[in-house]
Design a protein around this nucleic acid. Structure first.
Lengths: 223, 223
DNA sequence: ATGGGGTACCGTCACGCTGACGAGAACATC
DNA sequence: GATGTTCTCGTCAGCGTGACGGTACCCCAT
């Protein structure tokens, strides 16, 4: 074994959709490096702990979310020699997609949702990690059913469509969008109930189906 | 900084197409753990070295390839606590796509190409890393022009089609395939020359174009 | 020279999916 | 009831694709 050792951390890009905007969970740093600046939630990997376990643990402790219900995947690793002034730290970025929460963040203080479009500066190289996470999410909406991960347990097609609008910035046609998601087998499971949103005709409520991939994919207009 | 530190390595999934088969570069281990078994090329990250730099260095020293000409990207990180009996080692898997080389591998001894379909057992968790790399390559052929990375500097459409056949296991229709790749702007740049393959009408020679993505993607028949 | 095997490249056609609408059904409010 | 909003059913043209016939061009055997 070599003598040049690394500290290994996991950082989380936790995304949600609030009020039609794509938001990321950020916390204000209190510790020494980059104190006072915003940063992604994260922490060091413990001994005898795997990466996904560490990310799950951080997700639960930082946001108070239940375990297992939400989407969590590895993004990429970042290990530029000068990315941390304290020394050699490799961080494994993770992407989490969660529905809009009643309480912003039950975890520590200074933990809050920020619209991704308004984030300007972050500690360390977290801006690059965030950009990679957002791009991954955008790409995955094209060929997976992952948009439903942003929705609550039961949701209407309109709510699902607004997820695409928030993540992509483009608003798909309601009729064509409805046709696409309802004809994809296993994407949506109707509950038989309807949601009265106050205005207009109530929409049918759906639950997430077993399907995970979209064939053919749903392409966003721009590029 | 915590006391639980990791050794950090990079491992390479180097893929090529030889005789119509997708092959991976493997070397036989001589060092203590898993001695005698086949393993992916790789090594520890040096101080003040970034991940992609370390992967590039290993690629050059193990295979004798020139730098910068070939595709190299990060795959994912693997850090199961018991993946290395020597201690806590995190490895960052990388994927490299190279054209068929005249000499199998100029690097160390015991370094050779193996058909991916015939690989049965590898040291550490390298079998999982290889599987992820192959799956990534398969997926990327669908929506990128990366198949040309397996081809030499100049190539015909038939050679490019055989890359798809080797990676996907399915043989696309020659006429439809030709229409697809030639009508995609920026995929292929004709050189004006022809390649006499000995049998049949010589095919037109092309070079890689500036395009990187395929819109709409080329979907493989199966799933 | 002449024909045959093999490969490259042309064009055609039907099918499926998509974007772009029209129109009706089911709610709320006034 | 009238009006506005939203959901959900349609229709239609256009594009890309799978399937396939036909032709051009090369080498080689006769």
């Amino acid at each position: 074994m070599r003598g040049n050792l690394f500290a290994v951390a996991v950082d989380l890009v936790v995304l949600t959709v609030r009020d039609g905007e794509l938001c990321v969970l950020l916390l204000e740093r209190t510790a020494k490096p980059f104190a006072g600046e915003a940063a992604l939630p994260g922490g060091f990997v413990r001994p005898a702990e795997d990466l996904l376990d560490a990310a799950t643990r951080e997700l639960v402790t930082e946001t108070g979310l239940e375990i297992g219900t939400h989407h969590l995947e590895q993004l990429a690793s970042y290990a530029a020699p000068d990315r941390d002034p304290r020394g050699r730290v490799l961080t494994v970025g993770h992407l989490a997609l969660v529905p809009d929460l009643p309480e912003p963040a039950a975890g520590g203080a200074g933990c809050a949702w920020h619209p991704v479009a308004k984030v300007d500066q972050l500690a360390f190289d977290h801006a690059a990690i965030l950009a990679d996470g957002v791009e991954r999410a955008r790409a995955k909406l094209e060929y997976t059913t992952l948009a439903a991960a942003f929705c609550p347990e039961e949701f209407t097609i309109s709510q699902l469509r607004r997820v695409y609008e928030a993540v992509w910035g483009t608003l798909p046609d309601p009729r064509n969008f409805s046709r696409k998601v309802t004809t994809t087998p296993g994407f949506l499971v109707p509950t038989g109930e309807r949601l009265n949103a106050g205005r207009g005709r109530p929409g049918q409520l759906f639950r997430r189906g077993p399907a995970t991939s979209l064939h053919p994919p749903m392409l966003r207009g721009d590029e």
